[in-house]
Amino acid sequence: MPDLLPEETLEEVVNLLVRLVEAMGAIVIFAGAATAFVRFVVAALRGNGDGFVTVRLFLGRFLALGLEFQLAGDVLRTAVSPSFAQIGQLAAIATIRTALNFFLSREIERERSMVGGG
């Protein structure tokens, strides 16, 4: 049975997709950080003490989403004929990013309950 795509072509396509997904993650994180900075400055100028927590929650959601995009890029990277070393590296990266995302989500939820009053 002939290959649908030669492996070299498939690797090039996947590498392009990885770069696109990772760029999307970086854009999400940058957009969140830039917007959060503006919100922080506005809150600071207004003397809004609760604004800091709100800004952290806002930024945290963008960071969590950006980490998901970065993890998706890592998964894509190992989609085409991965070696055991790449699988091990993916497992380590996935574990670290999942832990970061877990603790970030927990912090967001804790601060959300503080802001929401319960």
Results as ranks from 00 to 15, higher is better:
Phe62Cys: 06
Phe30Tyr: 09
Ala36Asp: 00
Ala36Arg: 00
Gln70Phe: 13
Val53Glu: 03
Glu12Arg: 08
Ile87His: 11
Phe58Ile: 01
Val115Gly: 06
Leu20Phe: 12
Arg46Thr: 05
Ile27His: 04
Ile87Ala: 07
Glu22Val: 10
Ile29Phe: 13
Asp3Met: 05
Val18Glu: 09
Glu22Met: 09
Gly73Arg: 01
Glu68Arg: 10
Asp74Cys: 05
Gly118Asn: 13
Asn48Gln: 09
Val115Ser: 09
Arg39Ile: 04
Phe69Ala: 10
Ser113Arg: 15
Arg110Asn: 07
Asn48Gly: 01
Leu59Met: 14
Glu12Met: 11
Phe62Asp: 02
Ile29Met: 12
Leu71Val: 05
Phe84Ala: 13
Val13Gly: 12
Gly32Asp: 13
Val75Asn: 02
Ala33Pro: 01
Leu4Lys: 12
Ala92Ser: 14
Ile29Gly: 01
Leu71Ile: 03
Val14Lys: 04
Gln86Ser: 09
Ser81Gly: 10
Leu76Arg: 06
Gly60Gln: 03
Pro2Lys: 02
Asp50His: 09
Gly118Met: 11
Ile27Val: 15
Arg39Phe: 05
Val13Ala: 14
Thr78His: 01
Gly73Val: 00
Gly88Leu: 00
Leu10Gln: 04
Gly116His: 05
Gln70Lys: 14
Val80Gln: 00
Leu59Trp: 01
Ser113Asp: 11
Val80Glu: 01
Leu57Ser: 02
Val14Phe: 06
Leu5Cys: 09
Thr35Met: 13
Gly117Ile: 00
Ser83Met: 08
Ala92Met: 15
Val55Tyr: 02
Met1Pro: 04
Arg61Tyr: 04
Ser105Ala: 12
Gln86Ile: 02
Thr35Tyr: 08
Glu12Tyr: 10
Val41Gly: 03
Val14Asp: 05
Val21Cys: 02
Val21Trp: 04
Pro2Ile: 05
Gly88His: 06
Arg46Gln: 15
Glu111Phe: 00
Gly60Phe: 03
Thr54Ser: 12
Ala94Pro: 04
Ala94Val: 01
Leu65Ser: 04
Ile108Leu: 07
